[in-house]
């Protein structure tokens, strides 16, 4: 036994244990978050896949994906429980004389599919992102390439930061007040586009600025020293190299746009609409029509109709399709961006 412990002796066991425990708690917090997220994801995916996939070829439930919602009628017929969509039920009653007064339980939206919602969401997102990218990238170009730090620019940046914190429902109210009422566009694609575009604007600006800043100063200096004007420099020596970054980061904005319900509730979304968006008589009508949208449809089917085995299919199916769409976009964005970050070090 040594009277003096060596100076490099390991610390006491107890202290090490305590440290290990604290770190383990932090670690547990991390994995608790992942577990919660994973749990939600898995629940929707597993239960939803029962609606979207099927055992026989083509393995995907095309009716669900590519037809419009209908009411589901459930009734007893000749000792068997039958489930039929609207049209089928009507045809059935005409065919079967005894069925005219059959008592059926009806569940709205629980049969058919969600094709109009998918189409509406895609249209909404495409338009909103086009607008947001055009304004957002231009704005970022100004902030990163032209602007010099001054009181005004600080004010603009403050506005962008604050815009990012405005609740989505407030954007909804604003869009309703300005586009739907003041401009008289009614509930329409156009109103939805602008509302959503303004909402993601801060995301797009921030992402674009980051991408522009990542382009090395040397390229700008080289172009300017060769006699390029400011705009030529931006067009030929900055934007082309920033564009991949701008796009990948902005895709995350797409996920956000697609995922929001509150802003489109009063500006663009219809609970139900029989026609598909492109079935319009005049081209302008296209812009001024309301559409069905996946997130709003989820809201409707999860809050306005009862929960039971018949409605669960459409609820989980819609949530599945929507979550998968958004998740794919988000995952693509995150992966692309991480790859880009590691590659773009010149």
């Amino acid at each position: 036994m040594n009277a003096h412990p060596t100076p490099f002796a390991p610390r006491s066991r107890q202290r090490r244990l305590r440290e290990g425990l604290v770190i383990a708690i932090f670690r547990a917090a991390t994995y608790a978050v992942l577990l919660a997220g994973g749990g939600v994801f898995a629940d929707i995916l597993i239960k939803g896949s029962r609606t979207v996939f099927q055992a026989e070829a083509p393995f995907i439930n095309t009716t669900f994906l590519f037809s419009a919602p209908e009411s589901l009628h459930v009734f007893e017929w000749e000792g068997r429980r039958r489930e039929m969509g609207d049209r089928e039920f009507r045809a059935f009653r005409e065919r079967e004389p005894g069925a005219a007064d059959v008592r059926a339980e009806s569940f709205v939206y629980s049969a058919g599919g969600i094709w109009p919602c998918i189409a509406g969401t895609l249209l909404l997102v495409a338009g909103a992102m086009t607008l947001a990218l055009a304004v957002g990238v231009s704005s970022a170009v100004y902030l990163s390439e032209y602007a010099r730090d001054g009181r005004f620019i600080r004010f603009v940046r403050l506005a962008i930061l604050n815009l990012a914190g405005v609740p989505s429902i407030v954007f909804g109210l604003f869009g309703f007040g300005m586009f739907v009422i003041f401009f008289g566009w009614n509930v329409s694609l156009l109103a939805g586009w602008f509302t959503l575009a303004f909402m993601v604007l801060p995301v797009v600006i921030t992402a674009s600025e980051e991408a522009l800043k990542a382009v090395p100063q040397g390229l700008r200096a080289a172009a300017l020293a060769l006699g390029a004007t400011r705009w030529q420099t931006i067009r030929t020596a900055v934007l082309p190299y920033a564009l991949p970054g701008i796009l990948t980061s902005s895709i995350l904005g797409i996920a956000r746009v697609a995922g929001e319900t509150a802003p489109i509730m009063f500006t663009a979304a219809y609970v139900v609409r029989d026609r598909l968006p492109w079935e319009v008589e005049r081209a302008v009508d296209f812009l001024f029509q309301g559409v069905m949208a996946l997130p709003y449809h989820i809201y409707v089917v999860s809050s306005k109709i009862p929960q039971n085995e018949y409605t669960e299919r459409v609820q989980y199916g819609t949530a599945f399709v929507f979550l998968l769409l958004v998740a794919l976009v988000a995952a693509a964005s995150i992966l692309l961006r991480n790859r880009l970050r590691s590659r773009l070090r010149w």
Binding site: G37, V40, D43, I44, A255, A258, G259, P295, F322
Partner: peptide
């Protein structure tokens, strides 16, 4: 692994979470 995964959670649409709350 963890950072992108948590970022991924941020993309969950809130209406889907709301539905999860009602259903499960």
């Amino acid at each position: 692994v963890v950072k992108p995964a948590i970022e991924f959670i941020s993309a969950f649409p809130s209406v889907v979470l709301g539905f999860f709350g009602i259903a499960v």
